[in-house]
Design a protein around this nucleic acid. Sequence first.
DNA 1: AGCACA
Length: 465
Amino acid sequence: MSSSSGQPQFRYTQTPSKVLHLRNLPWECTEEELVELCKPFGKIVNTKCNVGANRNQAFVEYADLNQAISMVSYYASSSEPAQVRGKTVYIQYSNRQEIVNNKSTGDVAGNVLLVTIEGVEAGDVSIDVIHLVFSAFGFVHKIATFEKAAGFQALIQFTDAETASAARNALDGRSIPRYLLPEHVASCHLRISYSAHTDLNIKFQSHRSRDYTNPYLPVNPSAIEGTLQPTVGADGKKKEPESNVLLASIENMQYAVTVDVLHTVFSAFGTVQKIAIFEKNGGMQALIQYPDVTTAAVAKEALEGHCIYDGGYCKLHLSYSRHTDLNVKAHSDKSRDYTITDVGILSVPQSCASGWPSVVQPASVVYNSRGISDGGLSAQPVWDANQQGQGIRPGGYNQPGVPGAYSGQTYGTSAVPPYSLSGTIIPSTSAGLIQASQQMPPPPYAIQPGGARQAPSAGQPPFYF
DNA sequence: AGCACA
């Protein structure tokens, strides 16, 4: 096989290329020096330096062919040769049209991970779920998601390479827990490599990208809606934007629906953080807050139209609230804040309780101890708090972590397995969610008509109880 | 001083 596949290289007949080949460089030449030399002629999109046995060659790729031509032309007629550290550098077009560097992506540990989520479409995995999963290893600064030929991908920026590699080592090849995903997703493996990026440039908070370090970053108004649901339903009716907080209206309320009852019902799908009950238009409504949109979406889907009690009593109608963080009394007959009564729930969402590889168990979990609202596992976007003028409540479940407070903690001791009640959720409006065997017999209706308390309407923050 | 190697 000695057929000459490569054309002979004639000095003056090389075809131009965006890629330039530089030789006679000092062996210790850095990429910075290379860029310094070449950037006056155009935008450099890639480099490869210290090439060859003597490490004295390099490649530079311009964004545009004309930029490469201008550099070659310039030095072809210049009286001063191109130099690096006093050495003359010889420049010519490369015989390749682009630089392919396999080393800088995937192998070199950086603080930004490139995550390919296999087997899903972009709408299947929300950015909140990604944030939740990767926050287990440290503060996630930024996330950018996009779709490429490889599939749905995300860039996830950590503080440093150590944190990033901990996440990579733990999660590469693993799957996102099923209960964090829509039902139709069969499997969802993560393929993780290092990105060459060190700092992502996030322009907007949106369903595709987040900057958790900058609560004042503008929200892209056309892109804040969740990705799990279309914004227009099958009937052409507009759907409200998704939220981690559900608004429940309770119809045919023959029996009292207490905070405890709601907690029992809604905990089947994930950690319930807060509940508030109020009257509206003579009926009863409740707000149920989950840590993330996905959990709320799952609960909404599963519970909509079902009855808490057999016989068609206390039928639930669910929609998304515009609230993202309820401001409720920790313990009253109309509200409950479960995040401050149980530190375990506060720091470790139940959504990590099962179905998750043991490598993500708390021994490897390092929470940052900074007082930033989303330093923990909160899927609460900071920008929501900002937008609603609610400020970040230091006493809430976003309470800054006490160093070491989480170590040795075990996941899920109080966790209800996801979908554990699903057996009782039968697609029939007469099937009650709470069975007699659960020792919660229907108590008599006990809500005083025309509630004494004036409750703000569900869409209007702030919301105090 | 003359083209990268998975």
